[in-house]
Design a protein around this nucleic acid. Structure first.
Lengths: 201, 201
DNA sequence: TCACTTCCGTTGTAAAAACAACCGATTAAC
DNA sequence: GTTAATCGGTTGTTTTTACAACGGAAGTGA
């Protein structure tokens, strides 16, 4: 299977570039060992780490699969690491022997892209709201739906939830207190309950 | 080709549900005629239109392809319309005759998912910034990169840009004026220029 | 038990955004 | 040419958030 993908491996020292912004890429990267950072430089030269890719994770797949190719970000080795590259044309095109693995691989990639879409779409839903209150209620609404109950736990601590919703931790805490006071929600630690009263919204 | 996808068509009257939130879906929808709304209801019963899907466009593809299946949103006919449904299993699985169309179709779907990912990821990049100024500069930075120049036009009017960045139009206008005054950017209508001075950021 | 840390709620202040309202310029419609 | 509508900038007020700082509660480890 490795062969039919045209896969190759390469090692990088800490700080080395795997891909540079502006590169045209045709190969999906998979971190076999170590981890890499996805970094973005803005027009004024400020560098920003926007994601960390660990062992077993993939990068550049959207650009390769989308046929966009030109990277808006760079990929930098966060430590010494080993990367596998797989050629997209070979991945997406059934090989002559029509192997089962190939078919499965395609389905896996489609699944990964689709689930990332769902995740991004969901987060966008909350973050586009203007106020901390709206963002929080939007998030809690979704969690309630996911759990199929008006009472549920969330996988974030306060700081994590604040980061996820792109708001201040203290502002989030304060807003939560207010919502509790108003009888809209109830909570203790990471366990929340959505209340029915207070239809004043 | 239609046959090998297991496609079927159905018509809906205005206001009818094509899919309901909570439905488990296995079929991708394509609007052949008319348009549908993607709507979300929150825990307090507020309904929100989050997207409009027009002729030739697809919906529910991420949930079907991602194997998630359970919809967090409903799909409602915005007017009388005709929908085609395509079974995902048949789409993603090479048909016995290994037809060329099938292979192309898979590549198209992968491309659509991937490009939507890129779009969402890019927008997220801007929107997660805390202030209007940061959101705007982040957006302009990306546009500058896309155009390969520090001078470029953008495809939004003020209101459109404000909506895209999830900020107030007037606040955006005010921030733009300030940035121009400070010598960070220059603009006229939809044409922008990023200036080099003012490294005070 | 005692220090030490982390998490979280609270408070006060300063900064920023939302909101509403207005106005001038440009465009479109008659 | 006049009217109407749209768009974009401005201003002032109110609301909301960011930020910094503090303190209590709970957990950890010596």
């Amino acid at each position: 299977m490795i062969k039919c993908l045209g896969a190759r491996e390469k090692t990088y020292g800490k700080g080395n570039s795997v891909y540079d912004a502006g590169d045209f890429v045709r190969e999906i990267g998979v971190v076999l060992d170590g981890r890499v950072h996805i970094v973005r430089d803005d027009a004024w030269g400020n560098r920003n780490i926007i994601a960390e890719i660990g062992e077993g994770e993939m990068f550049a797949e959207a650009f390769v699969c989308g046929g966009v190719g030109v990277l808006p970000v760079s990929v930098v080795a966060a430590c010494d690491c080993k990367i596998m590259f797989a050629d997209f044309q070979r991945v997406i095109t059934q090989c002559g022997s029509a192997c089962v693995f190939h078919s499965l691989l395609i389905r896996n990639i489609v699944g990964i892209l689709a689930r990332k879409n769902i995740m991004l779409q969901g987060k966008m839903e909350h973050i586009t709201k203007r106020t901390t209150r709206e963002k929080l209620l939007s998030y809690l609404s979704e969690q309630s739906r996911l759990h199929g109950s008006r009472e549920f736990g969330v996988p974030f601590d306060r700081q994590g939830l604040a980061d996820y919703l792109s708001v201040e931790r203290s502002a989030l805490s304060a807003e939560m207190s207010r919502l509790k006071l108003e009888g809209v929600i109830n909570y203790r630690k990471n366990h929340f309950e959505l209340l029915f009263d207070s239809l004043a919204e």
